[in-house]
Amino acid sequence: MTNEGNRGRPRSQQARQAILDAAAALLLERALSEVSMDAVAQRAGVSKATIYRWWPTKEALALDALYAEWNTVRPFPRDTGSLRGDLLSLLRPWARLASSRPYGRVLAALLTTAQSDPVFATEYRQRFVEPRRDQARALFQRATERGEIPAGTKIDVALDLLYGPLYHRLLHGHAPLTDRFVRDVVDMALDGILPGPA
């Protein structure tokens, strides 16, 4: 006998994924201001009511669409045995993905909204910024447990030293976001983090 309670769930998840895929595609084709819920609904083959069931605003949908795109990168890298190796394993795949398409334009639009909308700013940090920082924070905690870095290391400052240059290039586009640049950022940041020779 069919379980009526489960009948709608796969279809519901398919619709949700179709909406995220449609929103991501439209955001990469045009500016956020030019993307409408009507266009997303038409591209995804769903009604606007279906979209509003999960996302109250276009900006919230854009946020989740970008997160879903970037979350295709391995969420937690393997333990390479060193903080440097762990960070490269985390940041290089993300940098390759982020630089492969015009994500900087999408991110800039979301940041603009966050600067003028305190409610969205909180949502942006909770749903987009902090999950990525938590991934890197776990690598520093692992390095502390290995005795590789001092227990009192200011991890949040270290995260800013690492992510700041990457987002700077992504947003401004003044130079490419390459594997070599990621390596240079990691090496220069670790020069100030790792303890020197006794």
Score class of each variant (00 low, 15 high):
164 G>C: 08
140 F>Y: 15
174 H>E: 14
165 P>V: 02
170 L>W: 11
135 Q>Y: 04
170 L>S: 08
142 R>Q: 11
141 Q>S: 08
145 E>C: 01
137 R>P: 02
136 A>T: 15
151 A>P: 15
170 L>N: 11
158 A>K: 00
175 A>L: 12
160 D>N: 12
177 L>R: 02
138 A>Q: 06
135 Q>K: 12
161 L>G: 14
166 L>M: 07
149 I>G: 09
150 P>W: 09
134 D>A: 13
161 L>S: 14
165 P>K: 03
134 D>F: 08
152 G>R: 03
146 R>D: 06
151 A>S: 13
161 L>E: 04
140 F>G: 00
167 Y>N: 10
142 R>M: 04
164 G>I: 09
148 E>Y: 15
158 A>M: 10
151 A>G: 06
168 H>P: 05
149 I>F: 08
177 L>A: 08
135 Q>G: 14
165 P>M: 01
145 E>D: 14
163 Y>I: 05
175 A>D: 03
156 D>S: 09
152 G>T: 07
144 T>P: 01
158 A>W: 11
139 L>D: 00
166 L>P: 09
138 A>D: 06
148 E>V: 08
172 H>W: 13
137 R>V: 04
134 D>M: 13
132 R>Y: 13
160 D>W: 14
160 D>R: 06
171 L>E: 01
177 L>Q: 03
169 R>H: 09
176 P>I: 03
159 L>D: 15
